[in-house]
């Protein structure tokens, strides 16, 4: 499975989202690669991603992607990330 974590610049929020998504995926025992990306890179990588993690403000820029777009409100909240990832995968 391919997951991308997207933020505006690709150095802050997306990196935090990637790290915390990897923790959650590890707990769930799910094999996936998670890449951090800025919006420009997301437009290149997005079409082949199964899941796109981002923040609520950026969802509208990613809606046309084939994968599921998940908005995370609180990037340190592993429970929120786990619940939303589990829902998207079921």
């Amino acid at each position: 499975m391919k997951i991308i974590a997207v933020c505006g610049m690709g150095i802050g929020t997306s990196v935090l989202l990637k790290m915390n998504a990897e923790k959650v995926l590890g707990m769930l025992g799910i094999q996936a690669t998670v890449q951090a990306a800025d919006i420009a890179k997301a437009k290149v990588e997005g079409p082949t991603a199964d899941i796109i993690l981002t923040t609520p403000e950026l969802v509208y820029q990613l809606e046309k992607m084939p994968g599921k777009v998940i908005a995370i409100d609180h990037v340190f909240d592993l429970v929120e990330i786990r619940e939303k990832l589990t829902a998207a995968l079921s």
Partner: peptide
């Protein structure tokens, strides 16, 4: 400028903003 362009997504958790721009 990034905030103006992309909105308040830099507020990553309750009470915490991560202010940054591109390299």
């Amino acid at each position: 400028a990034a905030f103006e362009e992309l909105g308040p997504y830099m507020v990553i958790a309750p009470g915490i903003a991560l202010a940054h721009a591109r390299p």
